[in-house]
Amino acid sequence: MSQEIQDGLAVIINEVAGVPVEDVKLDKSFIDDLDIDSLSMVEVVMAAEDKWGVKIPDSDVKNLRTVGDAVDYIAKATA
């Protein structure tokens, strides 16, 4: 499941910010490593919400520092 989410996120991040799919690894920071700015992060969250049918409030988004954080969050929310 986690791998599926990671792959899905990689596609979204590639679509939004042009980051190569293979660079989207669990330990990568959205801001520092993937150069995702705050506007792009909102786009990533919107696309993730649509894809997995979850709701990710802003108060939780600020805790999603790495790709791994997001994968865990979505896995838990869809469990």
Partner: peptide, 10 residues
């Protein structure tokens, strides 16, 4: 409104 793009304004 939750699906309006954050890029709309710029």
């Amino acid at each position: 409104p939750s699906r309006v793009s954050p890029l709309m304004v710029p």
